[in-house]
Design a binder for these strands. Structure first.
Lengths: 222, 222
DNA sequence: TATAGTTTTGACTGTCGGTCATTAATTGAA
DNA sequence: TTCAATTAATGACCGACAGTCAAAACTATA
């Protein structure tokens, strides 16, 4: 369907605001941004922001949605490889790590989004719905890989793929969350004792759960 | 050392404020609390809050510290059991789950604390230092259990216990975080597909990483 | 009881998210 | 081209809230 010039301009404006906000998050951190700052950076009046977004939250949500789309795209490509299911899971893990390293702003916004989870007026938001949909899609990629693995025998089929998928998703978030902060040099005393790279941490994690879900038969072969 | 009445009263006041805030978090949620609300609940003037805490953040930090102390205490007790290292890790996992279920407010505040990790003026705070110290202590319990397990042969010693500890800690946070929100009925589309209990999710997780870090020898025995 | 010292208080301030009356730009009919 | 009608953009303003501080209330001592 063809868009009118007005519609195209409107969308461009909206993207401009999102771009400006992403920049600011990168430069100032998500907690040090005001609507006035965003307006200035995007070179529009403050009121204009509210013509495109319901609230400050909505802008962050829009960024989150953009990020999820990119991540899902990467996941989709990873799943195209001709590999046994177990390897696909590892591939997804590495894809996620790469995404977080290359797009720290999106990772920041994902965390912000998570922190809103008990926010009631969020549930209504159409944007939030789309974020949820994206998360579900990401989840589907994992489950698909698990199912492939159970089919080809590389993954132990004693688990329910959906339940295992959630465990893997949650655990990955947790591990990468921790590794991310270490990398960002955020003060975390826990992490002082060990000298690990984000890479090695994630590798260890992948090996750990990889071994855990491998078929006994297969794991003997290593 | 003996405390004067004044000192005792001062400490009691402080605890009173913390108690009041915990109550409010439970009733209203951490995002719907104002300093005026806390003052009213604690039956003191607003200014008084600032005689005991530098800021609103500090109050939450104090709650976080209290929670960490309780959690560490539970971890300490779990480690006293006469079990092989691998079982100790499982025991720690279940202890953590139980703690979160019984003390949702502390879990909420832990998450709040985590979200402050890139907050610069936090690093100075003496309270934050103590929270960090607590986290490090929790971490030590896990590492200790891993070392025991590598000693008694129940855990594969191909991993570095510190690094594995961080992986386990991060992954556990992630899984329980997810399960917690499911339980709290927070809208999360990802979770709609599956009908799992917090229990079963954590059990699966424990089994997954348990298998992953078990010695090959041992895992054959199951 | 008088007074010096200490603690508590809530009215006040600055900041920020969000609103809305006003202004500017665009469109399209005459 | 002109001008009225419609639509878009703006920033002065508002309410809410974290944090401050001068004054009030309280306590201890002589």
């Amino acid at each position: 369907m063809k868009l009118t010039r007005k519609e195209r301009e409107r969308i461009a404006r909206r993207e401009l605001i999102i771009d400006a906000t992403e920049n600011l998050i990168d430069r100032l951190g998500i907690d040090n941004i005001t609507m006035d700052t965003i307006a200035t950076e995007a070179e529009v009046g403050k009121g204009t922001l509210y013509l495109h977004f319901k609230s400050k939250k909505s802008i962050y949500l829009a960024i989150s949605e953009r990020g999820s789309r990119l991540l899902n795209h990467a996941f989709g490509k990873a799943l195209l490889k001709e590999l046994p299911g177990l390897k696909l899971i590892e591939e997804l893990g590495r894809t996620y790590l790469k995404f977080v390293q290359e797009n720290p702003v999106y990772f920041t916004v994902f965390n912000y989004y998570e922190s809103l989870i008990n926010d009631d007026d969020l549930a209504q938001s159409e944007l939030a719905q789309r974020c949820e949909e994206s998360a579900r899609e990401a989840m589907t990629y994992i489950v698909r890989a698990l199912q492939i693995g159970m089919q080809d025998g590389s993954i132990n089929n004693k688990y329910d793929p959906h339940e295992l998928g959630i465990v893997i998703w949650g655990a990955s978030r947790g591990v990468i969350h921790m590794a991310f902060h270490k990398q960002k040099k955020h003060h975390m005393k826990i992490l002082d004792d060990v000298n690990f790279s984000l890479q090695s941490l994630v590798s260890n994690f992948i090996e750990l759960i990889g071994t855990g879900m491998a078929n006994d038969q297969q794991s003997k072969n290593n």
